[in-house]
Structure formats: C-alpha cells, structure tokens
Design a protein around this nucleic acid. Structure first.
Lengths: 239, 239
DNA sequence: GGTTGCCAGTATGTCCGACATACGTTATTT
DNA sequence: AAATAACGTATGTCGGACATACTGGCAACC
C-alpha cells in the first residue's frame, strides 16, 4: 500500500473508493491527516488530490467540519475524468450511467447529420482511416480471438464524426462520451460475424456523410445504434 | 492590490488575466514565487489556484519549466466556470464563443422536443413559474427602465426546459450554457415591446410542451431563437 | 425554563522553509 | 562533432506551525 504514492496515484485511489461506493454520497471521508498516514503522503499532496475531486463537484470540503461525498447530481459528468471513473469503477446501473447511454443514443444521429453538412476533406479522411482500421482488425481476428484494435478504431470512428461537426462543444462531448462508447462497443463486438456487420453499418454512415446526405446520415446512424442495442440485449443473457 | 487575497480571489484574478488575453495561449505565466509576491499569498495558495486552472485544461504545468497557457482547444468548455469566465472577460469573437452560441441554437429545439415528451407535472410548474416571473417583470418595467428580473426569469425558463428532459447531461449542459444565454437575453430584451413579444414566444413553447406536441415544441423554439437572432442583428448596429 | 453567550475541540485553510525531481542550457569529455 | 556531465531554474513534495470556521456543551442571564 505504501510504495511511491504521488498526487495522481492518490487521486485515482480516492476516486476508485468513491465510485465503487466505499464512501457513499453524504458520507464523510477520513480526515486529511488520516489519509496522509493511510497512503503515506504529505498533507500538501492529500489536499491537492482532494481539491481536484472537490473541483469536479464530487466532494464538498467545509472548514472545521470535514470532507464528504456530494449528491451525484452535483458531480460534473461533463468532465471526461468523471465519466472515465464512472465506467471504470461503477456498477452498470449505478449513478447516472443510464443517462449517459440515453444521451449518446439520442444525440448521435443529430451529430452525424451535422457532420454530413460540415465535414471537410480532412474530416472525411479521418473517418475513413478509422473505418479502414476496423476492417484491418477484422482481417486479423479469428473465431475465438477478436483483435482488440477493432474497438479502438470503432471508438476513433465515432470521435472523428463528432469532430467533423466543427464545433468544439460536440468535440469535447465526444471526449466525455468516449469511455461510455468504448464500454459499449467492447460488449458488442464479440464474434467475427458481428464485426463484419458493424463495419457495414459504419460504412453506410460514412458514405452518407461523404455524400452530404443529411437525412440519410441520420437514418444510418439510427440503424447502427439499433443494431448495437439489439446486440447488447442478446449478449445480456450471457452475463 | 494586496488586501485579503484568498485562494478564490486569486483564482478569479488569474482567470481574468488569461481570458482578457493578458497571458496569450502558449505564453508563460510568472513563476509561482512571483505570483506569491504580486498577490501577497503563500506558495500553497498560489499552487492551489494554479492547479485548478490546470485541471480545467487552461494551464499546463511542467516541472522544471514553468506554467503556460494551453491552446484554447484544450480548455474544458464544458465546465460552467470556464463559460462563465469566457462571457465575463472575453471579447465577443474571441476563443470559442461562437461555437457555444451555435451549439445552443442548434440543440435547443431538440431539447424542447425531449422536454415535450418527458416533462412531469413538477417540470411544467417550474417552467410556468419562470414564465409568470417574466410577465410580472414586464408589468414592473417602463419605457426607459427594464426590470432586470426579466432576464433572470428568462434564463430560468430555459434552464427549466433543459431540466424537463430528465437527463442529467442536458441539465448540466444548461449550466454550461447559462452564462451564454444570459449574455444573449441581456442584449435582446431592451424595450417593453420586445419583452412582450418575448413572453409570447416563450408561452408558445411552454404550451407545446404542456400538450406534449413534440414537433410543435421544436418549431416554437426555432421561432423563438430566430426572433432572438433578428433582434440581435438590429441591436448590433447600436453598438 | 428557555435563550444567549462563551469556550474548548476538531478539521480545513493558509503560511513558511526546506529538499526532491524534472527540464533546458552550457560546459566538458571523448 | 557527438555524447555526456554539470549547473541553473521551476515545479513537486514534505513537515510543522498557526489561522479560521464549524460543532457542541456548559454556564450565565432574562
């Protein structure tokens, strides 16, 4: 427990403790001094990590009282680190995971339509590269062994689409949604057949964007999301 | 300059210096020690404020090198504090203000449609309260003296609509957009006639949500935004 | 009896001085 | 000339001390 704990390590540990539910909303965390002893760091380091968690709305620190976990409604879910911790440490139905999934499902068709209108040549290139990566990863996948790169390129595809809107807000939202999307594709792409289907769906989205067909882009995205949802529903039985 | 500077004061000062362009992207900030002397605080306090700005992607701190302003593309615009500073200290066309305005204009019709589907009785009550507040503020306004409460209730109306989606992401996005919306309504609502028109537009949106008319809600919102845009265009000459 | 005010206990906020670590530059060596 | 060592500089971490803010209990007072 005691070897080489720096600020970032401590931050990760504390986040894990909170997101796993070890410290529930409303509960107090140990005092700064106790944290220092537990993780073998100085008070400066402990305070630094605690402050970061307070800045993201996860903790509230009151002088003379202590540090407690805030109501999850106050957590800044629009901070990529928060969604990262959420997907990494939290249970599926915990906190606001479902809201993130719903949000992604409801806005992505719209995002793709925006991309169809605004995508530049460079954007199309980036999207196509991700698509090529998916195809390559399909070729290197076997029945029992899916190439892990497939998921990486899958996520890259979606990030490239968000970036193609040429709006910083959508681009940054893609960073927030990235952990969510990654968790979802990781559970969806399980068989080589599924991978091939996925590539086909993504290609239809890309083609619509390339041809600047707004409505078609939206529909293709909706179809892609529906397929993912159906795939997750069948896989859910396996768990 | 030297009286009673605590961490939050320093944070605000540094943010102001950056967002006004005093320290441009890529430039170095003064050393921690220099900041201590300038604002008469200890190094702990200075480091605390600097770390917060680093956490929001505004600054990058490299050991042995110094602290410099990051590329605005890296700034976490999805943090309400960032958009607050942006509207408060930055020039109109600076940084990513336009992206925020475009984003709001493009998503708000969709948000209203979601609200029309999901709004509960309590949500409708909150929206109607804001509408009532706007009307009351119109009554207490005279030709030369607009009641400042009108803008407050105007913003409250929009926040209530975002909250009515029953999705945390949209709710938190409303906090991000709040400074932007406030700045926009403050420039739009200038005459009593304009106020009356605004109330009418907002009421049409509310009625559509109440009747669960998705498409009508979207169209009413679009009309409202168009009116705002037109109003801003005519007012722009006055500046 | 109920309210007010004082006081100790506790935890965070701030300060100071020191050393460790990382980066960039310069000087040295091969 | 290239690789390496030494040095200056700025951030990262440490330890201890005092300041400030919240809580709760006790006592004085109306």
């Amino acid at each position: 427990m005691q070897g080489a704990f720096n600020r970032d390590d401590l931050l990760e540990q504390l986040a894990r403790s909170i997101f796993t539910g070890e410290y529930a909303p409303g509960e107090f965390l140990p005092r700064e001094v106790d944290i220092c002893h537990t993780y073998n760091v100085s008070r400066s380091t402990a305070r630094s990590a605690l402050q970061t968690l307070a800045d993201t709305g996860i903790l509230v620190r009151i002088s003379g009282q202590g540090t407690r976990v805030r109501d999850p409604r106050e957590w800044q879910l629009l901070d990529p680190r928060v969604t990262h911790w959420l997907t990494l440490y939290s249970e599926a139905g915990q906190f606001y995971m479902q809201d993130l999934l719903d949000f992604r499902a409801s806005v992505e068709p719209f995002v793709t339509m925006e991309a169809a209108t605004r995508a530049s040549a460079a954007d199309l290139h980036a999207i196509e590269d991700a698509l090529s990566g998916m195809e390559a990863a399909w070729h290197t996948s076997h029945a029992g062994r899916i190439d892990p790169l497939f998921d990486v390129f899958d996520v890259a595809f979606h990030e490239a689409v968000y970036a193609a809107t040429h709006n910083v807000i959508w681009t940054q939202l893609s960073h927030v949604l990235k952990p969510i999307i990654l968790a979802q594709v990781a559970r969806t792409n399980r068989t080589t057949d599924s991978l091939l289907e996925s590539v086909a769906c993504h290609r239809r989205v890309f083609e619509a964007i390339r041809l600047r067909e707004r409505r078609q882009a939206g529909e293709a995205t909706q179809a892609m999301l529906d397929r993912t949802a159906a795939d997750l529903a069948t896989n859910a039985v396996a768990f």
